[in-house]
Write a protein that binds this DNA or RNA. Structure first.
Lengths: 255, 255
DNA sequence: AGCGCAACCCAACTAATGTTAGATGTCTAC
DNA sequence: GTAGACATCTAACATTAGTTGGGTTGCGCT
């Protein structure tokens, strides 16, 4: 706790983004209890692997600043299966799963808050409502996976890319990091290709296509979106599945 | 409870498959407590929609007999994002999510056990270890989603189909429903196509391809697998992600 | 038996994506 | 400042998948 308070002073964003995705469903008191669960704030370099597939861990990690991706590898080929923005509890999974089935890697430098598993255990025993919110946060990941499966099954590469950037923009907006006209990201075209199941060359063709249509201009980490609504329409992007404000939003009733 | 006991006598498989996936991690006592959570056993016809996207529900459903799929729809096009075999807790998600982001549909007739949400709430308050197992069961769905995202990103249609059938065979085996040389399923080629993000025509080509290679013979719901190991190799199928007996298997330590 | 429907099968053509082989630009290490 | 690494971009050709327009088979119904 002390360590965390110190870090909090040093990195004023830390507190702000804690459980960004859940903030609408948490009482002020729960928010404080969640912050109390944090034992330390840690920095990582670009490319760092926070957790590797098959490892056990005693901590779970909340992303405070930066971008992270979940990856799986097969025959030396990397697949990116999801990504995370500040405010996401990136590996709460490894609390209940113990051994994780995937890797979590930093894209660009990142700051994270660590939550020891014994504090989560204590919460499970003491605080059913907060437990349920933590559970919810992992189910949200599953819902994002499902949406992404659908998009892989239905969309062409340019539309997949449009969908990814729509989602990133929207999720950044949900934690107060959005700009209406775009955002900056450490993702490369080749990372995006690995998210789409396309080759980097084909992803590049798709980016050129989106540029020609004036839907999305991506250059060296700078994403410019001239018209958000048009991009969403092209990608068939409907943000309900993010469980933000839309149809599916979580009710704040008590457990 | 009474209702359930009656049904249990009438359908002797009911108890056998309860929480099939979790059975190795549960004590006998927990198993009984889980069975106590069941309020009723219900039958469904082929094509029935158990839960529709956007609905709330007071019950969660455990699949006792039959096959089910999770579907999402966009522009009238159906995507199947995952499937379930007996022993799976198919919509525990809607306990923590409240409004579900997807549909759950029966493929062929099905028997399910219903678990009221207030009993799950009680479990969350009383029994941290069983709660954690329930949580685990939903995280398992997320792990399956991730594997499937990777396969969509990496494999051609024939290999995707080989992977799906490898997984089904394996999951049936894990709950004692396997045959070494194949299985029966109410899935049609067109269902499988919707799982792969391919057209039914292309799926048919892929089935012909698999038949020619003598890896998998699928005809009218009858799946014959001449050599399981060869099919797995062709599909690059490694069942660790099912969290059965492999590297990643859940430890049975207490919460 | 004969009808109708659904699942399955097939071929020819078109569109999307992968592969190979580069060229160019930008940043960092030395 | 130069070399090397890496990201981006492009073109030509090969493979995979979608589309169109059929045909065949099996099964339930009357």
């Amino acid at each position: 706790m002390i360590a965390f308070e110190e870090e909090l002073r040093r990195y004023p964003n830390t507190g702000r983004f804690l459980a960004g995705r859940l903030r609408h469903s948490m009482s002020q008191d729960e928010r404080l209890r969640l912050e109390d669960m944090v034992s330390a704030v840690v920095h990582h370099e670009a490319g760092d692997r926070i957790i590797a597939r098959g490892n056990t861990c005693d901590n779970s990690t909340m992303l405070v600043e930066g971008f992270m991706v979940r990856t799986l590898e097969s025959n030396g080929k990397r697949s990116i299966v999801s990504f995370h923005v500040p405010g996401d509890f990136v590996d709460l999974h490894c609390f209940a799963l113990k051994r994780l089935d995937h890797n979590i890697d930093c894209i660009g430098p990142a700051t994270v808050a660590q939550v020891p598993h014994d504090r989560i255990k204590a919460t499970m025993a003491d605080d059913p409502h907060l437990s349920r919110l933590l559970w919810f946060s992992t189910l949200l990941d599953a819902a994002l996976h499902r949406e992404w499966i659908m998009k892989l099954e239905q969309l062409t590469t340019p539309r997949r890319i449009a969908h990814i950037f729509s989602e990133i923009g929207c999720r950044l907006g949900m934690v107060g990091l959005g700009r209406p006209d775009g955002f900056d990201t450490p993702l490369t075209q080749s990372d995006v290709a690995d998210m789409c199941g396309a080759t980097a060359i084909h992803a590049n063709r798709a980016f050129a296509d989106l540029r020609r249509r004036d839907l999305l201009i991506f250059e060296r980490g700078r994403v410019h979106i001239p018209d958000c609504a048009e991009l969403h329409a092209y990608a068939d992007f409907h943000p309900d599945y993010l469980y933000g404000e839309g149809d599916l939003a979580l009710e704040t009733e008590d457990a």
